[in-house]
């Protein structure tokens, strides 16, 4: 929309107000979805009952209190935190690799993390000398990190295009899936059942402890991204331009990849591979709010959290009394929605 010279500043302020409003609406959508997620289940609770149980647990019957606080809240919050973490990881991978198809899932980082966790689960193998209770997340992290570094090393080679990176990612996905199958082949029956859990992705095993760790990783990494918001945005103008602005492009890429590996590894270790959130969340955020990372980062997190939280709701209502694996739901529901968004979008971001 053309504007006279004197109103460009006002125009920008209006744009910023609109972005803040959109962030507010996303947060509101998340809150509604969270309440719905808490209300639904084999024991149906009204929205008011849920709010009461959250605000003053003593004022509701013990059954409702136990259902909300001990069963549903860790799962519902895990959906929010995992959705936010995976979407943030995807947003940053797309930014630093300058590639719309980049995400922990499509580039094999999630598959590598699953393989790392499966090694621990099936054979008790520890990739780092740590206590047994931290073995799974750290195994997942080590494998995710190694994969991220392979992708990083290749992306630095001359003549490597965005398409090459995606092809390499597909190769890595197949490699780790094959290795995972090998682990299952040699593992005991009990271990195989546990490994299969990862490949489907499920929030039902969420606990307050796992939720705390995943949240801690998200809370610890977020300020590091936010501090570099201008530099990360500059990367989207091309490496030369970012470097001309004084951004240390190589260092920024490497640091971001380490953080992305952390963000992708912990959710995978706790809830299994949940695909497409890392791909879809950032795309929705980009279409709504653009790529100024000061707004894009929170928008990506909120979009990812809303999608996974809604998927959790859908997983309960598809067949009453049964909870579908969340990874299956995100793929079945999320992808058609995503395709309709892309095809319907007038402004193509990529």
């Amino acid at each position: 929309m053309p504007l006279p010279d004197s109103s460009t500043r006002h125009g920008y302020r209006a744009v910023v107000r609109r972005k803040r409003l959109l962030l507010g609406l996303l947060a509101l959508a998340l809150l509604c979805s969270l309440l719905l997620d808490l209300a639904l289940g084999s024991v149906r609770l009204g929205p008011w009952e849920v709010v009461q149980a959250l605000l003053s647990p003593d004022s509701v019957p013990p059954q409702a209190r136990v259902v909300i606080w001990d069963i549903r809240l860790p799962v519902a919050l895990m959906a929010v935190v995992v959705g936010a973490a995976l979407s943030l990881a995807g947003a940053q991978m797309q930014t630093i690799l300058n590639n719309p198809l980049a995400s922990p899932f499509t580039l094999g980082i999630s598959a590598a993390a699953s393989f790392g966790a499966a090694l621990g689960l099936a054979f008790g193998l520890r990739l780092l000398p740590v206590a047994a209770e931290y073995m799974l997340p750290l195994n997942a992290f080590v494998m995710a990190m190694l994969t991220a570094l392979i992708i990083h090393a290749l992306s630095l080679k001359r003549g490597v295009t965005a398409e090459t990176i995606v092809l390499l990612g597909i190769a890595l996905v197949f490699t780790f899936n094959a290795l995972l199958a090998l682990v299952q082949y040699f593992a005991t029956e009990q271990a195989v059942a546990a490994v299969v859990f990862w490949t489907m992705g499920s929030l039902t095993k969420a606990t307050w402890g796992k939720l705390a760790i995943t949240t801690a990783v998200l809370v610890a990494t977020l300020p590091l991204f936010l501090r570099r918001a201008w530099a990360l945005t500059a990367l989207r103008l091309g490496d030369d331009k970012a470097a001309s602005f004084g951004v240390d492009v190589r260092r920024l890429r490497l640091h971001t990849l380490v953080l992305v590996s952390l963000l992708a590894a912990f959710p995978v270790a706790f809830v299994g591979t949940i695909g497409f959130i890392g791909l879809v969340g950032p795309h929705i955020a980009r279409m709504l709010i653009g790529e100024d990372q000061r707004f894009f980062l929170p928008a990506s997190m909120l979009a990812g959290a809303v999608i996974l939280s809604l998927s959790s709701v859908v997983s309960k209502i598809l067949i009453p009394g049964t909870i579908f694996p969340i990874g299956v739901v995100t793929s079945l529901i999320g992808i058609p929605f995503f395709i309709s968004l892309i095809l319907g979008s007038r402004r193509r971001a990529w």
Partner: peptide
Amino acid sequence: YMPQDPPTSAALTVYESVLLARKQN
């Protein structure tokens, strides 16, 4: 330094890109 500019697909407006250049660091 103003490099030769490759086309970009960034979802940024001209205004945002200029502000971004100014606010770097």
